[in-house]
Every structure is written in C-alpha cells, then in structure tokens.
Amino acid sequence: MIAARAKSTRLWDGLSLSHKRVLWAWTFLAIPILFYSVIRFWPTLQAIALSFTNWSLMRPASFVGLENYTRLVQDPLFWQVFRNTFLYLIIGTPISLLLSFAIAYYLDRVQFMHGLIRAIYFLPFLTTAAAMAWVWRWFYQPVPIGVINGFLTWVGLPQQPFLRSTVQALPAVLAPAVWAGLGFQIIIFIAGLRAIPTSYYEAARIDGVSEFTILRRITLPLLKPTIVFLVVFSSISFLRIFDQVYNINFNDPGGPLNTTKPLVMMIYQTAFKSFDMGYAAAQTVVLFAILLVVSLIQLRVLKDR
C-alpha cells in the first residue's frame, strides 16, 4: 500500500511541470467529456445516421441513401427558409450588438438611477416568450386596436400591415426577438466592461487621453473575448431562432406564406407535425453544418485561438 503510494508519488514528482499541467487539464475535462459524449455527441451521430433513412415516428426506418438531401435541395420551401434564416442573422446580429454595446457603454457611466435603468433593460429577458409575443402581436394590429398603427395614423401616415405583409413580417418578427435578447447582451457587455481593471483607465486619464481614444485603444481591445463570445453566440441564437417566430404567429407559424419561417421551425414541423424524422434529421445536419461554418469563420476572423 504504502509502497505503491510512494511509487505513484515518485511518478508524479518525476513529471515535468508542464506534463503535470496537461494531466490536470484532462482530469478536469474527464467528466465533462463523458457527459457531452453520452448526452450530446451520441444523439447527434444518431441524427446524422437517421438522415439517411426514411424513419417516421410512426413507421420503421429503412436506408434511403441521399434521398432526404436531394429532396431538400429540390424543396423550394427549404430555400425560402434558408434565405429567412440568413436574414435573421444578418439583420439581427449587428443591430442587437451595436444597440446593446451602446447601451452598456453609456449605462456603465451613468450613476443616477443606474440600478433601475439596468433592471428595466434586463426585464424583457426575464419574461415568457409566449406571453410577450401576444402583446407584440397586438402592437402590430391595424387600427382601432394596434398601438403602432394608431400612432402612424395619428401623425398622418398610412397604416402598415406589418405581420400581414410578406415584406414587413420578417423585420416585425425580428424586433421582439432583438427586444427580448438585448438585456442579455447588455449584461454580458457590462460584465466585460467591469472586468477591465480600472487601473488602465486611470493611467490613460492621467495622461489626458480623450474618451474616444480610450474606447478605441483600451476598452475595445480588452473587451475582445466578450465581443467574440457575443458575436458567436448571438449568431448561433439568430440562426436558431424559433420561439419568437412560433409564438407571434401561432395560427400560421412562419407565415404569411412562409416568409418568416426559420430553419429550426421547418425542422420542428417536419419532425413533430408530419413525423417525418428522416427528413427532419437531414435538415438538422444542414443546419449543423451552417452553424459550424459560420462560427468557425467568426472565430478565425476574430482570431480567437
């Protein structure tokens, strides 16, 4: 016993410092890797395998090769949904990041009622998506009910159809999604801003550097890990948008005429409304590939290695 112990201690002592650290790293990672393998990777592999079958929840599966993928490429709905999904990404991500950074940056410097204002901006993030979608739906209504159209007609502008338009519906659906997620991004930005040691600022201020230069030379570079996180994570969230779209138009989800339908909703409907699991799995694989490529490009461009 003691000998064995002594031996292992000797083994441990014999390791170089960097080897020890590698061992520590894998020790820390052991349980998580096991967890992710069983709970996430294995089902993902199953989904990939399923995408080559015609399994429906109601019928046994058989191998169909690439049929689901060729069907997907020929499905006009898929291309419509593909376009919508990217619109959510390209409109949603920059708008919400710029807004939340501006708010966080100024909120960080405001002291009067700071706590209250911060809580107010965070409040939408705490609410239930289904309940809030209903409220937004009513904001978009035509007169005499709709708040926004009421305002437009009051200032003498024509009514807008918003959710009942194939052009305006997507931005109209996106607005509540940005609204609800803003608080989250603001908090992350504030946490990032607060993690920057104040000593850096003090040094700069003593040197009499302008606020804008401080922002550009100190704040933004030191905030980079936070920015990387938010860019990647917001992009993934917008590419995976579902709840807000589903709830705001739940009688015709993704409508009108599929102009707001994102890819995840197509997957959900294929899997759980039509029970076409094989086809849904193929869509999932495509979504997975898109997300992975987009994230890797972002990480590469932002050089986070």
């Binding site: 990777f41 997957i267 997300l291």
Partner: peptide, 11 residues
C-alpha cells in the same frame, strides 16, 4: 461549442 448547433428538438 458544436453542441450548441443541434436544435434540442432533434435530441
């Protein structure tokens, strides 16, 4: 990170 990219619905 890639586990963020599979929608829960499929799991």
């Amino acid at each position: 990170l890639s586990t963020l990219m599979i929608p829960t619905e499929m799991l």
